[in-house]
Amino acid sequence: MFSALTGLGLSTAAGLNAYIPLLVVGVLSNITDAVKLPDGYDWLSNWGVLGVLALLLTAEFVLDKVPAVDTVNDVIQTAIRPASGGVVFSATSAAAELDNSTWMAENPWIGWVLGIVMALAVHLLKTAARPVVNTTTAGTGAPVASVAEDSGALGLSLVAIFAPILVVLALILLALIAWWVIKRVRRLRARRRSRLASP
Rank of each mutant, 00 (worst) to 15 (best):
A129T: 06
F89K: 10
S194G: 15
I31E: 06
A145N: 13
L166A: 04
A160T: 04
A4L: 10
G7I: 01
I31Y: 10
N46Y: 07
A121Q: 03
T71F: 04
R195C: 10
A95M: 12
G9K: 01
Y41T: 09
V35N: 03
S101F: 04
L28Y: 04
E97A: 02
R192V: 10
A14Y: 07
L125D: 01
A83M: 09
V72G: 07
I76T: 07
I31F: 13
Q77P: 06
L57G: 05
A91Q: 07
R81G: 00
A119R: 08
V181E: 09
A175P: 08
L57Q: 09
P199I: 15
L5E: 05
D74Y: 00
A4R: 09
G40N: 15
I31H: 05
L37R: 02
A14C: 14
L173N: 13
S198I: 14
V181T: 08
A13N: 04
R191E: 14
I110C: 01
V69M: 08
L53N: 08
I110L: 06
R192D: 05
L114T: 07
L98H: 06
P164H: 06
N100A: 14
R193S: 14
L57A: 04
V181P: 02
A54F: 15
N100E: 11
I177R: 11
R192L: 11
V72M: 09
K183N: 15
V87P: 12
L171R: 07
G9I: 00
I116M: 14
V72K: 04
S101W: 07
E106D: 11
A105W: 09
N17V: 01
N73Q: 12
N100G: 10
V25N: 03
G111P: 08
L98V: 08
S45C: 13
W112D: 03
V24E: 06
E106S: 08
D99F: 07
L120D: 02
I161E: 06
R187L: 15
T102W: 07
T12W: 06
V87Q: 10
G15K: 00
V35M: 05
R81M: 02
I20R: 00
S146G: 08
D70G: 12
P108A: 00
R189H: 15
D99Y: 01
V66A: 11
V52M: 05
I116Q: 06
F2C: 03
L98S: 13
K65G: 05
A68H: 15
L23C: 13
A129V: 02
P21T: 00
